[in-house]
């Protein structure tokens, strides 16, 4: 089992709403000990009553979160988090607006002691289409969207529902099967940002309630072992309203307990401790029918098949 600290990258071009998302996440009463690493420390704006301590490049909050400036050495900023007395459960890393997402995903996802959890790209409903055609940054903006595990569509409240639908249709045209989450006021639920609670035993307890009506969490305890190949195929077929899958299952082929992690279109299988309890959790924005249908699809993978294959590694480096 891994003890690496999972990192969620928040990418997106200048003005896409990353800072608003960060400010909301830092102030949220969500019970996670998150470290948020930012480029522009000056833009972080948090209610003073939530601040425990503050110095030149770190703000500690009463909810257990910290916000730190990355400075000019990303690796050193990560090392500093790992060296803390109690390291954070999750890291949210703000990528610079001009960062190529796959490069930064490789950089931090393989940094000693860390692993990539999710690559979330903020896209501004007002400007993303124009930006994607811009002479200077069009290629970069399209690349950011294409490499997102989850697209956080911001400022939908400013453009109205019809225009928001138009932008979503355009995004799906750019990226088939794109996982899109509307974050009108920069609200990014922690379950979406970091997945179901990381501690394995928490998965078998009550699942945290989704704070937003349109984000749903569905849990299921499969009665049998599952096949990796079958799961891999089921994941490919999941509706785009399912953003995350996490689960522990007994691998039909090896008989071992296995961890499945899936964010957007990317998944991986990892070895899990033998005493883990079987459970599958889905997080998404689909209707109940859609989410339950997706769960049925996954739990139907109960026949042994050949050629299990993980696409996780391939996706972040291709």
């Amino acid at each position: 089992m891994t003890t690496r600290i999972p990192i969620t990258i928040l990418s997106g071009y200048l003005g896409a709403g990353k800072t608003t998302i960060i400010n909301r996440l830092l102030s949220g009463d969500h019970g996670r000990r998150v470290a948020v690493l930012v480029n522009d420390f000056g833009a972080v704006n948090i209610d003073a009553s939530l601040i425990e301590t503050e110095d030149d490049n770190t703000i500690s909050l009463t909810n257990g979160c910290v916000c730190c400036s990355i400075g000019d050495d990303l690796g050193a900023a990560l090392d500093a988090q790992a060296a803390r007395h109690i390291p954070p459960e999750n890291i949210l890393l703000e990528a610079s607006g001009v960062a190529e997402p796959k490069r930064i995903a490789t950089h931090v996802g393989f940094w000693p002691g860390f692993e990539l959890d999710a690559l979330i790209v903020a896209a501004d409903a007002e400007t993303v289409r124009n930006r994607a055609n811009d002479k200077f940054v069009g290629q970069l903006v399209r690349s950011q969207i294409r490499h997102a595990d989850i697209i956080a569509l911001t400022k939908t409240d400013l453009v109205g529902p019809e225009a928001a639908r138009g932008v979503k249709a355009w995004l799906r045209n750019q990226v088939p099967n794109a996982r899109i989450f509307e974050a009108p006021n920069g609200t990014l639920p922690v379950a979406l940002a970091f997945g179901a609670d990381r501690a394995s035993n928490a998965l078998s307890g009550p699942v945290e309630p989704a704070p937003h009506s349109h984000l749903r969490t569905v849990m299921c305890v499969p009665g049998t072992g599952l096949s990796r190949a079958g799961l891999a195929r089921a994941i490919e077929a999941l509706p785009s309203s399912v953003h995350r899958v996490k689960g522990f299952f007994r691998d039909l082929e090896t008989g071992r307990m296995t961890l499945l992690q899936c964010v957007g279109r990317r998944h991986e299988f990892l070895e899990a401790p033998t005493d883990t309890e079987t459970v599958l959790v889905l997080i998404g924005v689909g209707s109940d029918t859609e989410m339950n249908g997706a769960m049925d699809l996954l739990t139907a993978s109960d026949a042994l098949e050949a050629d299990p294959k993980s696409t996780f590694a391939a996706r972040i480096s291709d």
Binding site: N39, D40, G42, A43, D72, S96, G97, V98
Partner: peptide, 9 residues
């Protein structure tokens, strides 16, 4: 602008 300062004032 200093290195690592991506959008400072």
């Amino acid at each position: 602008a200093l290195r690592g300062d991506w959008n400072g004032s």
